[in-house]
């Protein structure tokens, strides 16, 4: 029985070998087995370095496009920029009597100057008021902001009395208002409502 089985196994083995011989790889197929590896070697690997380079290139391209289109928008829509409040200097170029003129407007500068002027006016208005702190021959009036001491001499006081521009019954501690002419000279000293407080 065992001999019988051995014969069968041998026969099966022979048939298997014949089947295998009919299904072999050709020499070209065997060479091709390694061809894949050579192809891989010739193809650069997509390593992290490549990924990084690719990412940086993409960012650079994006930035360039962004800059380019921003520039385009800036050049093609000047009105938006003219209206923009951020512009502080405006140059005006023009011809007058065949002469070239160039004006420079400083928007911010103008605004600053106006503000300073307004502040100065306000300050002067405050200065126009003061409290009489000493009443002797000369009067000493401290400005409301206590920065300036105005001395009004007796001669001027006399002049004001003559002109009837000096209030009667002015006592020490009263709040006085100055009145100036265009030259800044005191032309009147008026007692103001004591309820009105000094400002500034």
């Amino acid at each position: 029985m065992s001999h019988h089985n051995d014969d069968f196994d041998t026969k099966l083995n022979q048939l298997y070998k014949q089947h295998k011989n009919q299904n072999k790889l050709s020499n070209i197929d065997k060479k091709n087995l390694l061809l894949g590896d050579e192809k891989r070697k010739s193809t650069p690997e997509f390593s992290w370095v490549n990924t990084l380079q690719f990412s940086l290139a993409a960012i650079a391209l994006f930035t360039l496009f962004n800059l380019y289109f921003n520039e385009q928008a800036y050049l093609t829509s000047p009105e938006i920029n003219v209206k923009s409040a951020k512009i502080s200097i405006t140059e005006i170029h023009y011809l007058e009597k065949n002469t070239y003129h160039k004006k420079i407007k400083y928007s911010h500068q103008q605004a600053k100057e106006q503000l300073a002027q307004a502040k100065e006016t306000l300050k002067n208005q405050v200065l126009f008021r003061g409290r009489l702190i000493n009443k002797a021959d000369d009067w000493y009036i401290a400005s409301c902001n206590k920065e300036i001491l105005v001395q009004v001499n007796a001669s001027l006081l006399q002049q004001l009395k003559t002109n009837k521009t000096l209030d009667n019954n002015i006592a020490q501690g009263d709040l006085l208002a100055f009145k100036h002419n265009s030259k800044g000279e005191i032309i009147a000293l008026l007692k103001t409502d004591n309820m009105q407080q000094c400002r500034g």
Binding site: H19, K20, N23, K24, L25, D29, K30, L33
Partner: peptide, 9 residues
């Protein structure tokens, strides 16, 4: 050479 045919079969 040794095993490619075995594997392929």
């Amino acid at each position: 050479e040794l095993h490619a045919d075995d594997l392929y079969h």
